[in-house]
Design a binder for these strands. Structure first.
Lengths: 360, 360
DNA sequence: TGATGCATTTGAATCGTTTCATGCCACGAT
DNA sequence: ATCGTGGCATGAAACGATTCAAATGCATCA
């Protein structure tokens, strides 16, 4: 045994430290042998250098370098009972909003020496649970999840199974689930108030299916703001999804209308809709933005600022959402007492699409 | 020992299968005890059900369900010596192109029951190697990497360390590295040829630093196409980065020019630049797209189709890039002989921004 | 009846790291 | 000289799934 080890180390040395191929894994035992200490000491150097004398630390670290030792995380986490990864399940990483969430999450995780496992659910419950199961096998430390379904019960059960879950962009009334979200009611209020303050009175809300939590909340906020101004009205233009195409269709319908039946301001439930509306309004439609119709979108995606008529939008801190989600998870893991639900306030970014009428 | 195990199982049963809390992990031993078989059999049920009698399989699976057993992947991979994850390191997941790459990679990985570890390098070599090291500790099966630096030597050394590496959107002349990429020279040629065929002769290329491999190639392709048409010219407008802002600045500079010194077509090195140019051209600039200046971008990001003047663009199959990258990795792992470098052909998507002059 | 072959099951050994009770040593106080 | 004390180092045990040589049961055939 001893001898075998030694031979192995010698072979490694002979090869000059930079091993080609990959047939042989260097373990703590090899390092220990090379440094002339015990495995326990090597482990201490790795994890609690302060408990080891300076001289020994150096010797061990030299050996680590010389042998090109890389910790085997599987063994480490087998012993520890937990891994150093967290799972992130979003509907679609291709959606810029979630890409930003992922970015924030990964940043925070990397700070903590943790790693992010990515899963796309496509809003499909089966894909979602497939990911959750796989992640669970990896003994992830926790999950950031934007749930695909309204069936939070299943997720609740999952959370009770011992894996901390943080809901992203979705709150749950009660129970053990943590969440990071943005106050969508306030966002809707902000948008509508801004339009009202700019002197608009005939507002319209263009939004996706009301079954989507976020859409309903944004509408609610807008309604509240409108209700506070006596002569103001809010028309609801419902759309089946939140895409550019739907926005364009909605816009074209408005263009068709008689001029005095058009709203003088539109609040779109997200920026994609808003972009579609903008497109419809610019095809020689006779509608000028913001002169005839002022526009406010939601999400403040990168393109909002880059649109031809730069789009006012309610900013959601997507990156912070991800960052904070992981932060919550980490605190939960450390057993630190903390808020289980963080709610951000949205911010209105005013751009050209809702500036005062040029002819006011 | 026996007794202790049995007590544990009984306790689990008493709690009704759905364990609250998380103080106790269910292992193969528990399952084995509950099913009245040995651990080896449980393992066989899990991994080679065909070697176990039907009756036993059922009994074991019942026990698994009853106890809520979840395989501990750490132990599994410790024994196996390798994990079931692959690493993905991109400059920024917030960039729609890389988000799509990630999407494709994750799809393919999920098909194979594998999991994707995500890392953002921010084009920073240190961040990049931090990720690589972390991933290496996790004994990932391979890495998909869009390298931050030109220092492929370091990455080559890494690859020789035994971890299969697939470069994404970047090729390497020789050596052991696999890659998936798109033929950028051809993409440049396509764009320029298209503009030439539409009758344009005074072309301009707007592009980021030439040190970026992709930029240089796209330019090279465009130059080749232009050289083939005697009276055609190609002006190069160099820009320090590939952003909307830089595009707008370049556009404004063109607007300033005397009319007869302007190009009649612009090929932008990516869509963000193109969007910026479009913006500059539409501010009552007197430049109409495509009548005065035709435009072609690169990447075909989602917004290209949604722009006010819908943008012609050279499509890169981002999702396939990711998908194929993982596929290459998997083949490499299975020892299947296969191409180590896959190169996609780009595709030109023609939209309004480069249609024939309305007054032709 | 015993031998033979096949299908199934067994359980100890293994992977590489961390933990922790234990041992060793040197130095200062008594 | 003896006892404590504190600083370091040690190495066996443990984590949980997988593997594989060996054992077992069972049916078939000579």
């Amino acid at each position: 045994m001893r001898t075998a080890r030694n031979e192995k180390v010698e072979r490694l040395h002979r090869e000059g430290g930079a091993r080609k191929g990959s047939d042989m894994a260097v373990g703590v035992k090899d390092v220990a042998a090379a440094a002339g200490v015990s495995v326990g000491t090597v482990s201490n150097v790795l994890n609690r250098p302060d408990r080891v004398s300076v001289k020994t630390v150096e010797r061990v670290q030299d050996a680590i370098r010389a042998l090109g030792f890389v910790r085997n995380d599987a063994a480490r986490q087998l012993r520890a009972g937990r891994s150093r990864s967290i799972g992130l399940v979003v509907p679609d990483i291709g959606n810029p909003f979630f890409a930003d969430v992922a970015r924030g999450a990964e940043d925070r995780a990397a700070d903590a020496g943790m790693t992010v496992l990515l899963g796309n659910s496509d809003d499909d419950v089966d894909r979602q649970s497939a990911h959750l199961e796989l992640f669970q096998e990896q003994r992830i430390n926790g999950i950031l999840l934007t749930p695909a379904s309204d069936d939070l019960a299943a997720i609740g059960r999952f959370a009770e199974g011992g894996v901390p879950v943080v809901l992203v962009d979705r709150e749950v009334e009660e129970g053990a689930l943590s969440s990071v979200s943005v106050d969508d009611v306030e966002g809707g209020r902000l948008a509508a108030s801004h339009l009202l303050e700019a002197g608009r009175r005939r507002l319209a809300f263009v939004g996706g299916p009301r079954s989507i939590h976020q859409v309903a909340d944004r509408l609610r906020g807008a309604q509240a703001a409108v209700a506070a101004v006596p002569e103001a009205t809010l028309e609801i233009i419902e759309r089946p999804s939140l895409t550019v195409l739907q926005g364009r269709a909605a816009g074209e319908a408005l263009v068709e209308r008689e001029v005095d039946r058009r709203p003088d301001a539109v609040f779109a439930a997200n920026d994609l809709l808003a972009v579609g509306l903008l497109q419809a309004f610019s095809f020689g439609s006779g509608i000028r933005v913001p002169d005839d119709i002022a526009m406010v979108g939601y999400d403040d995606i990168d393109f909002a600022a880059a649109a031809v008529v730069s789009l006012s939008s309610v900013r959601q801190p997507a990156r912070e959402l991800g960052w904070t989600g992981v932060d919550l998870l980490l605190k939960q893991l450390d057993g630190v007492d903390h808020d289980r639900r963080v709610r951000f306030q949205p911010e209105l970014i005013v751009r050209d699409s809702s500036r005062a009428r040029s002819d006011s």
